[in-house]
Simulated scan of single mutants.
Amino acid sequence: MAIRFDGRVAIVTGAGNGLGRAHALGLASRGAKVVVNDFGGARDGTGGSMTAAETVVEEIRKAGGTAIADGADVSNFEQVTAMVERATKEWGSVDIMCANAGILRDKSFAKMEVADFAKVLDVHLVGSFYCCKAVWNGMRERNYGRIVLTTSSSGLFGNFGQANYGAAKTGMVGLMNVLAEEGRKTNIRVNIISPTAATRMTEELLPPQALQLMKPESITPAVEYLLSEDSPTRTIMGAGAGSFAVIKILESEGINLAEEEWTPDAIAARFAEISDMSKARALQGAFEQTQKYVTQAATRLGIKL
């Protein structure tokens, strides 16, 4: 059965261009009423215009869909709250939040200004928090919510010149992990996409033949799945050029050392064992790590817990 969003209300941030535009068009084509949010700024977050968002709204309406444009700056909580209130007043709810808006201010760490670090965190990480916060109570009251945040391989795996962007994007994984846990009992599912596509943010970095493969539309199916009624929760999904993958943060099984071995020398001597990933697994919560370590210590000492 085809995934549909009939009767659902979605907000897509940064939806005037690139990935956000593709997500907004995709959700609308499958029946969602869509708030097309875009501050309309330049790639570095300066300026501002409603033109891009309004153009996407026109595309949706011409295709028979339902949409409104909104120019809220995601780094301004009052504006984000007003956007959510407007959508709720217009259509009765906000069921889906796709937090996609972002900016770039790339520089090597030695040359990066404090203001450029702060602004990128403000838009990506704090802005994602604001978007989630503004829809959270309504989703809890209605016992339904689907949220997708947007991370990046630049943070998960590293990329030169993007300390601000990488820190913000990986911070969002932490936000997703916690919100997924807190949302379980009220049917709010929270996931995160790690996309790579030809957008304003990547067009100068890749050759033309690669850009042709990396259409923003190749990411949208993953986002739609993660926003669907039967979606998983607490999942990091990679997507690009028609490839789809799941990304996990793994911890090695590790070893437990006797107290007399609590030295850097013992760790150095046994680092190959400590870092052996053959039994690595993805832990399902912070306390699972605590339990694992305590169990290992108790087992070594012959203590029954």
Rank of each mutant, 00 (worst) to 15 (best):
F5L: 08
G7W: 07
I11Q: 02
V12P: 04
L19M: 12
R21F: 05
A22G: 07
R43S: 15
D44G: 07
M50V: 09
T55F: 02
T55L: 07
T55W: 00
V56A: 06
E59Q: 14
G64N: 09
I68F: 13
A72I: 08
D73K: 13
S75E: 11
V84P: 00
W91L: 00
W91E: 01
S93T: 13
I96V: 14
M97K: 00
A99T: 12
G102K: 03
L104M: 12
L104S: 11
K107Q: 13
F109C: 05
V123Y: 03
L125W: 03
G127E: 05
K133M: 07
E141R: 14
V148R: 02
T150N: 07
T150A: 08
S154P: 05
S154I: 04
N164P: 08
Y165I: 14
G166H: 01
A168E: 09
K169D: 06
M172A: 01
V173P: 03
G174D: 09
L175S: 06
L179F: 05
L179V: 05
E181W: 05
G183M: 10
G183W: 00
G183V: 06
N191M: 00
I193P: 04
R200S: 11
R200M: 10
P207W: 09
A210S: 13
L211W: 01
S218E: 15
I219Y: 00
I219E: 06
I219R: 03
V223W: 02
V223K: 06
Y225V: 10
P232N: 11
R234E: 02
T235L: 12
I236P: 06
A239G: 06
A241L: 08
G242Q: 10
I247F: 05
L250M: 15
L250Q: 13
E251A: 11
G254M: 08
A258D: 15
A258K: 14
E260L: 02
W262I: 04
P264G: 14
A269F: 08
R270D: 08
R270P: 01
A272L: 12
S278I: 09
G285S: 11
G285K: 11
A286T: 14
T295R: 14
A297T: 09
A297R: 13
